[in-house]
Amino acid sequence: TFELKGKVGKVVKIAEDHYLVEVEGDKWIAYSDEKLSLGDRVMVVDVDGLKLKVKRIP
């Protein structure tokens, strides 16, 4: 999972307290300090167990 840091993915689902992002064909639970929208491109900035911390990228 640490090899996911720096990888780019996209938001595929928005849940009440987390996001579902697809990175390299796999779906992961993710969270972010900013509000994300469906389809946003994101970069993995940290890995916390099986959850990814992501940030939006242009």
Rank of each mutant, 00 (worst) to 15 (best):
D40V: 09
L4E: 05
V23A: 03
V47T: 03
K7Q: 05
R41I: 12
D48M: 12
L4I: 07
L20D: 08
D26T: 11
E3V: 02
I14K: 09
R56L: 05
V42K: 00
L50F: 15
K7T: 02
E16I: 10
Y31Q: 09
L38G: 09
A15P: 10
V12E: 10
L50Q: 04
D33N: 14
S37A: 09
R41T: 12
K13T: 09
E3R: 01
L50D: 04
Y31R: 10
K55T: 05
G49D: 05
I14S: 10
V54L: 04
I29T: 11
E34R: 10
D26H: 15
G6R: 00
W28I: 03
T1E: 15
G9C: 04
R56C: 04
V54C: 04
P58Y: 11
V21Q: 00
S32L: 07
M43L: 09
S32G: 08
E3A: 01
V45P: 00
K7M: 05
F2T: 15
S37L: 11
R41L: 05
L50R: 06
D48S: 11
V23D: 01
L50G: 11
G9T: 03
F2D: 15
K13L: 09
L20I: 07
Y19H: 08
V21R: 00
L52I: 04
I57W: 10
L52W: 01
D17G: 08
V11S: 02
E24M: 04
E3S: 01
E3G: 01
R41Q: 14
M43N: 04
D33Q: 12
Y31V: 05
G6E: 02
V44G: 01
K10Y: 13
K53R: 13
G6W: 02
V44C: 04
I14N: 08
L4H: 01
I14C: 05
P58Q: 07
Y19Q: 07
D33W: 14
Y31E: 06
V23S: 01
V21A: 09
L50C: 07
S37F: 07
G25E: 11
V11Q: 00
G9Y: 01
H18V: 12
K13R: 09
E22M: 04
M43E: 15
Y19M: 14
V12F: 13
Y31F: 11
V44I: 05
V12K: 07
S32P: 05
I57F: 06
G25F: 11
D46E: 06
V21E: 00
D33V: 09
